Simulated assay, not measured.
Amino acid sequence: MRPGENIMNKILKAFVAAAVAVAGLSSAVAQDGARAVTLYVPYGAGGTSDVMARILAAKMQTILPRPVIVDNKPGAGGRLAVGLIKNMQADGSAVLVGLPAPITVAPHLYAGKLNYDMDKDYVAVAKVVKTGFSVAVPASSKIQTFQDLVAMAKKNPNKLNYGTAGVGTIPHFVGHLIAKSAGIEWTMVPFKGGSGMTTDLIAGHIDVAIDLVPDHVEQAKSGKIRVLAVVGQHRAAALPDVATLTELGVPGIELENWQGLFVPKKTPAATVIELQQAVEKAVADPAVKQQLARVGLEVAYQDAAAFTGFVKADADRWSAIVRDSKISVD
């Protein structure tokens, strides 16, 4: 599904057997009155959020007194799942894997058009991981550095293009912010997901691609693409030799693609704490950290209180970004 899919699928296969075993356990436990914890992923199988959820579920299963399984509910850029999970039983059995696109960006990009309100419908459990974005060109490109990209774009306004996973996606906003901060004009080319975009990038059909770091790592290491910069607070562990935009003289675009857990609003506080503590223990395990790092994800644990504040701040930031960009999905 995504450009990092080959690496992720190798890891995903390692968890399929465990996931199936856990699913089998759920029926037996349910007979005793306990409900399995289901991590609902708002995107399809094989993507970064799906792999993260399966790694986390496998470890949480050993911590909690009930099974932990994963269910994918893709659709509408993640918004479908967010609108569904809010109405599920508030007993800790339904847990949403949330990301900024549907949680903190969509409420501003689709203002008045969503069937959910994060403040009214959900309670934050814990922040789990984060990753940055990367700016890449084909290996055959004459653009060797980010400075080359800026110079070429300034010399040829609107001639250079960049691919993203679609209009209104975070990479689209990243491209807009780069243009604003670097003083360039370039054209966004929307794709339906990242896989086709990376294929076209490698073939040289587009000049640049902006995507999640995990989705560029394998192709970069195999020499098929060249990553010019990463977007984030610091360099990506998976691409340690690639500088951040801030290091390259383009500050203020320290966006990250975080992942965290949420439960329906009326979930008991004790249950929220139980889930939070299970996440904390799970991501503290060195083996889990290593598994996540292999797919370009960095543990960024926050407890419920800290994560609630983080989500509020992220939503406020995206409100300003969406408003100032004038990007519309209408």
Rank of each mutant, 00 (worst) to 15 (best):
P3T: 00
Y40L: 13
L297Q: 03
R2C: 07
M188A: 14
D207G: 10
I206L: 10
P42G: 01
V213M: 02
R35I: 04
L64C: 04
E185Y: 06
V311Y: 01
R235H: 03
R66S: 09
I143L: 13
G4W: 09
K221I: 01
V29M: 13
D121W: 09
T62L: 10
V311S: 05
I273H: 11
V29W: 10
A270N: 10
P264N: 08
E185Q: 14
V95G: 04
R226G: 02
M118L: 09
F133H: 12
A90V: 04
K266I: 03
M197D: 06
H234D: 08
F173L: 12
A220H: 02
V29S: 13
P102S: 01
A18W: 11
R294Q: 15
V37E: 05
N115S: 12
E280L: 03
Y301A: 03
V97L: 07
A14E: 15
D314K: 11
E256C: 02
A139Q: 12
A278G: 12
A287E: 15
T169P: 09
G232S: 09
D241V: 12
K130R: 10
H216S: 15
V272T: 00
V97S: 01
A30C: 11
T244H: 03
G92R: 01
G168P: 03
Q302A: 09
D211R: 13
K154E: 07
L275F: 06
G309N: 15
L248R: 09
V129K: 11
A101Q: 13
I206M: 08
K155T: 04
E218F: 08
A165N: 01
S27V: 15
A17Y: 11
P264W: 10
V208F: 10
V322N: 06
V51W: 07
A23P: 01
D241G: 12
L96G: 00
L96E: 06
I55Q: 02
V329H: 05
V129N: 11
D211I: 14
K224I: 07
I69C: 10
W258E: 01
I103W: 07
V279R: 04
F310T: 00
A313G: 05
V128I: 14
L228G: 02
A90H: 04
A36Y: 00
A106F: 10
Q31R: 15
S328R: 10
V295H: 04
L212H: 05
E247A: 11
T62V: 02
V272M: 04
V70N: 06
I103K: 02
V37S: 05
V217F: 00
L248N: 06
V288G: 04
V283F: 09
D285M: 05
